[in-house]
Amino acid sequence: KVILLEDVKGLGKKGDVVEVKDGYARNFLIPQGLAVEATKGNLKEL
């Protein structure tokens, strides 16, 4: 699961917690600054 930092077409809006494949999160969303891993600490910051 990841928390979206920006609106991502076809996935969700900023602040949404979405389930995506590990590779998509690690190789695209997180490096592009579009999402962060949905850890307990990150979820509390919402």
Rank of each mutant, 00 (worst) to 15 (best):
K1I: 10
N42K: 06
D7I: 05
G23I: 12
A38M: 08
K9L: 12
I3P: 00
V17R: 05
A38K: 05
V8D: 00
K1T: 09
A25E: 02
V18E: 01
K21P: 14
E6R: 15
V17L: 08
K14W: 03
V20W: 01
E37C: 13
G10C: 12
K44F: 07
L29Y: 02
D7K: 06
G10A: 07
V20H: 01
N42A: 09
L34N: 02
F28H: 06
E6V: 13
E37F: 15
N27F: 15
G23W: 15
D22K: 11
K40Q: 15
V18M: 08
D7M: 08
E45R: 09
V8G: 00
F28T: 05
A35P: 01
K1Q: 11
V20G: 02
Y24S: 03
E37R: 11
D22N: 12
K44I: 13
E45T: 04
F28R: 04
G33P: 00
K14V: 07
I30M: 05
E19M: 11
V36T: 07
L46S: 15
Q32I: 06
E45V: 04
N42P: 06
L46K: 14
V17N: 04
L5S: 04
D16H: 06
D22S: 15
E19S: 10
V17D: 02
G33H: 09
T39M: 06
A25Y: 05
G41K: 14
P31Y: 15
K40T: 14
V17H: 07
L43W: 04
L29M: 03
D22P: 10
G23Q: 11
P31G: 13
G33T: 03
G10K: 05
L46H: 15
N27E: 09
G12Y: 01
N42R: 08
K14G: 04
V36Y: 08
K13E: 07
E19G: 07
L5H: 02
L4C: 01
K40P: 15
P31T: 14
T39Y: 07
N42T: 07
L46I: 15
A35S: 02
G10Y: 12
G10H: 09
Y24V: 08
L5E: 02
V17G: 02
L4I: 02
L43S: 04
V36P: 00
I3R: 08
Q32D: 06
P31N: 14
G15T: 02
Q32W: 15
K13V: 08
G12A: 02
A25S: 07
V36F: 05
K1G: 04
G12E: 00
V17M: 08
A25K: 06
G15K: 03
L11I: 09
K13I: 10
N27H: 11
K40G: 10
L46M: 10
L34C: 06
T39C: 08
V18S: 01
K13H: 11
